[in-house]
Design a protein around this nucleic acid. Structure first.
Length: 279
DNA sequence: GTTCTAGAAC
DNA sequence: GTTCTAGAAC
């Protein structure tokens, strides 16, 4: 049998199309990756068709404090994580209403996207690459492990090889991008991601995108909120875990500053206009 | 993560 | 008056 890596190589060289080749997918799943269960597929459809429907009964009060909202969001995400985890090991069981509710939460969207062959631009036995649904630059991919790891906080020494492989695949994506421009790329993780399931951002540094709309978007990629992949690997090797500095969330509120010349700009439109002078 | 919109800023 | 942001809601 042809090894998945070989098929991946063929795909990367354009000999076969990884996003449409059934043979490619079957071979990959035959090489150790779990075939998404019918239960998961069904949940995936639910998420796409009705992303908000299950939330109607849990509206929060406007007067709740920001701390309340933070803890509530965490609790919701964790609950949803646990549900998804449970589903993956008990696929033969009947769905409960609660299961659908949590799988449909917005923070679980990556789990659905990564399983969708239409979203996948590369995959092997360890990771899958998808295009960011709302790219913040001309090129913006996410590298996700098949293994369920909620976030950077869950990474340990045992994940070192996996994280290094994610970086290697990211480098391949950069090297094999469609255009031959000399635009720079960065590869890294958001210190405090919104979406569950650890994901490596591979993003070109033009930041030329209509989806880049606010200060949070900008600062999440241009301040230390963005932790370089190599730094994550180094932390894992030296400390056995990834530490996020206190006050990192405050970085999102910093003034808008050009990542090339460090000039401060007053608004997002002004920043976008300024970026044109560099690209 | 995004969308929506009140009200701040101009 | 318009532009833009920040925070609630999902």
């Amino acid at each position: 049998m042809i090894k998945c890596h070989s098929v991946g190589l063929l795909a990367r060289r354009g000999i076969i199309n990884p996003s449409s080749s059934l043979i490619y997918r079957l071979l990959c799943w035959g090489e150790g990756q779990k075939q998404p269960s019918k239960t998961k597929n069904a949940l995936g459809s639910k998420f796409k068709e009705d992303p908000t429907g299950s939330q109607s009964g849990t509206k929060r009060q406007r007067e709740s404090t920001s701390e309340d909202r933070e803890s509530q969001r965490d609790a919701q995400s964790m609950k949803a994580d646990k549900q998804t985890e449970r589903i993956s090991v008990s696929v033969s069981h009947a769905d409960s209403p609660k299961t659908n509710e949590n799988a449909g939460h917005w923070s679980q969207g990556l789990k659905t996207s990564m399983q969708d062959p239409k979203m996948q631009v590369y995959k092997d036995d360890k990771v899958v690459v998808i295009k960011d649904k709302y790219p913040k630059a001309r090129h913006h991919w996410l590298v996700l492990p098949w293994q369920s790891i909620p976030s950077l906080k869950a990474l340990r020494t045992e994940h070192c090889d996996l994280v290094k492989h994610m970086q290697k695949v990211a480098d391949q994506m950069i090297q094999q991008r469609p255009d031959c421009s000399s635009v720079q790329f960065r590869t890294g993780y958001h210190a405090i991601p919104s979406m569950s399931h650890v994901h490596l951002h591979v993003i070109s540094q033009d930041f030329d995108s209509p989806c880049l709309k606010n200060k949070k978007h900008w600062n999440s990629f241009t301040t230390d909120y963005f932790i370089e992949s190599k730094d994550v690997i180094q932390m894992l090797e030296t400390d056995g875990k990834v530490t996020v500095k206190e006050g990192t969330s405050e970085l999102l509120k910093l003034p808008l500053r050009c990542h090339v010349c460090r000039k401060e700009l007053p608004t997002i439109p002004a920043l976008k206009e300024h970026l044109k002078s560099h690209f």
